[in-house]
């Protein structure tokens, strides 16, 4: 059992949760994820680590309520427990293992989209702590859906905001803002993009035109998260890779995003059905002809 130390609403349907998980906190590095299970009948779902504090023994995750399992997790309050919290999983970001003098010669650009902004934070924080220059673009639908702006401001050299409706910062998509920065003469040596698959796909297409090395952190369906099930298969440079053990970060210009997006929908029908049944039950309806089995 893993206790929820803190819970905060960051934006509509987006929650931050700080979890008491000393072993995970001690071992975690930027770029890794955890597998979370709300209760004993819950699904195992992968969530990227948004922050960790080895001394306090805590790990922070940021969750958007999308389906039954994320809703279940978000319904829990501080003081309550998660049944399981296993990790850290996946390989840490590549830069963690690179010599610092090399890193310090580079200028990084991070692009975070929506809830994907949260896992960008520990990476930028790590680089900042190690004396590396990092600019950050945060993208969201509108001003109210922006998250992590204050935290990011503290660790980013330059912070740029893009909203679809222009209610904060640049009006338009992160890719358009990126192109504007390039037109202004900015230079980057590496880009890291984390967000919805569709955003990462278009960031990859855009940065490719500028020959800018780009890394993406892929989210996929998983059961165990340790290489056992193969549900997270993705094609990278024409080869099948397991996101859980060989990723989650890959060269953006080599990822088959269309396949990855299609594979995310493998259980959509069942998930929607489960959501509908849960909603009916919540509304007090009890199926008497067994359609909820």
């Amino acid at each position: 059992m893993f206790k929820i130390l803190e819970k905060r609403l960051l934006a509509e349907n987006i929650y931050l949760m700080k979890i008491d998980a000393p072993r995970v906190a001690r071992a975690a590095l930027p770029g890794q994820f955890v597998i979370v299970r709300a209760d004993k009948v819950g699904e195992r779902i992968p969530l990227t680590i948004a922050d960790f504090d080895a001394e306090e023994g805590s790990v922070t995750i940021v969750i958007q309520t999308l389906g039954l399992s994320t809703r279940k997790i978000c319904a829990l309050e501080a003081g309550e427990v998660l049944a399981d919290f296993a990790g850290p999983l996946g390989r840490p970001s590549e830069f963690v293992h690179e010599p610092l003098e090399e890193l310090r010669k580079r200028r990084y650009l991070f692009i975070g989209g929506g809830v994907g902004t949260a896992p960008v934070y520990p990476q930028v924080k790590w680089l900042k702590e190690h004396g590396v220059e990092v600019d950050v673009i945060i993208g969201a639908k509108n001003r109210d859906m922006l998250i992590y702006t204050q935290e990011m401001e503290r660790v980013a050299s330059e912070l740029y905001i893009a909203t679809d409706d222009g209610s904060a910062g640049f009006k338009g998509l992160v890719t358009a803002l990126f192109e504007q920065l390039m037109a202004e003469g900015k230079h980057y040596d590496e880009c890291v993009a984390i967000g919805p698959m569709i955003m990462m796909k278009f960031v990859a297409l855009t940065t490719k035109r500028y020959n800018l090395k780009t890394t993406v952190s892929l989210n996929a369906l998983m059961v165990d998260g340790t290489g056992m099930c193969g549900a997270c298969r993705v094609t990278v440079a024409g080869k099948t890779r397991f996101i859980c053990v060989e990723g989650p970060e890959f060269d953006a210009h080599e990822v088959d995003f269309d396949e990855a997006m299609r594979r995310q929908g493998m259980y959509r029908t069942q998930e929607q059905r489960a959501m509908a049944i849960a909603a009916e039950r919540e509304a007090g309806h009890k199926c008497r002809i067994g359609l909820d089995k």
Binding site: V41, G42, E43, R44, M228, C229, G230, Y267, Q270
Partner: peptide
Amino acid sequence: VSANEFLTRANLMHAYDSNYDTP
């Protein structure tokens, strides 16, 4: 799917039982 995934969903995660969340 791999047999591992299929069986893990069914056995470990009880996907055959509608009281469990795993599809």
